[in-house]
């Protein structure tokens, strides 16, 4: 299990990184923490990659608050995110998620940008940012552009990031005074990918509910959200199960995952007091 990489280059700044990606064409791969990419390379699921290491680019890590939004740099490591006071106040959902992501040594190198760009539908962060209604900030050869999270996740391991582009940050609204954010999931073992999980964010405008591990992308459960806004948990559970079509694999069937999503929704609802 030895990786067969095409080449490696360390980018000194964003411009350099974009140039490198431009040169590499479709072999180009952005390398940051490498916690998914290097595993895939070792297993030769990915070979011949031209690796553009952006992990040393300054200014792409860290959390800031400005103009009523929280901005999280793509290079922010899971471990740092979990302990960040701004995240704790405005995006506790992400801090909760960190505790579920793999194990300490992985969280010491994995980054939120890497996790989002990898777009594993069973991972926590994609579902979290969907529930948080985040905006994804991209840089490309032609400049910067923003993508609404609803347009970001396209398929398994596939996002709106175009060839030659880099995800540089995400931003999300700061928390409202009475905002509720909660993540619940069921996993076989600590740190395993969840069999199913839910992220719920309740703001004045209504509830946002996303599901992980139950489809090819994180799912925004709009039917369930409407029912929850109406205060009808039974209808919400029915709606949620109807709008999910989870895959079956060696860990669990789609039917089990769908069932669990409903169980988790009831538990979350009970925990947050049960009314819209």
């Amino acid at each position: 299990m030895k990786a067969s990489a095409g080449g490696y280059a360390r980018a000194s700044d964003l411009r350099h990184a974009l140039d490198l990606l431009g040169q590499a064409g479709d072999a180009g791969r952005v390398l940051v923490g490498g916690q998914s990419l290097i595993a895939a390379m070792n297993m030769r699921l990915s070979t011949g990659d031209m690796l553009v290491d952006i992990s040393r680019i300054s200014g792409l890590a860290g959390v800031t608050q400005q103009d009523g939004r929280l901005r999280i740099g793509a290079l922010t490591r899971h471990a740092d995110l979990g302990g960040d006071p701004l995240v704790g106040r405005h995006a506790p959902l992400l801090a909760q998620a960190v505790g579920h992501i793999a194990h300490a040594a992985i969280r010491n190198r994995g980054t939120i940008g890497g996790a989002l760009a990898h777009a594993d539908p069973a991972a926590e962060f994609p579902a979290c940012v969907l529930a948080l209604d985040a905006t994804m900030h991209l840089e490309g050869p032609d400049g910067a552009r923003d993508v609404a999270v609803g347009d970001f996740f396209i398929d398994v391991f596939e996002t709106a990031i175009a060839e030659g582009e880099i995800l540089t940050a995400i931003s999300l609204p700061v928390a409202e005074p009475a905002e509720v954010q909660i993540l619940k999931e069921v996993a076989r073992r600590s740190g395993d990918y969840a069999l199913a999980g839910l992220c719920l964010v309740r703001r004045a405008a209504g509830v946002r509910l996303s599901a992980l591990g139950v489809g090819s992308v994180p799912v925004l459960a709009q039917g369930a959200m409407a029912a929850l806004d109406a205060g009808d948990i039974d209808a919400a559970v029915t709606a949620l199960r109807a709008e999910l079509d989870p895959q079956s694999d060696t860990q669990a069937s789609g039917g089990y995952r769908k069932h669990i999503a409903g169980v988790l929704l009831r538990r979350i609802w009970d925990e947050i007091g049960g009314t819209a």
Binding site: G34, Q35, I38, A39, A104, R109
Partner: peptide, 20 residues
């Protein structure tokens, strides 16, 4: 698992090139 810049990390999930 080894220690890199003070943190426990997976030695198989970090390229030697990244340890410069």
């Amino acid at each position: 698992t080894v220690r890199v810049d003070g943190d426990a990390v997976r030695g198989c999930l970090m390229l030697a090139a990244q340890a410069d």
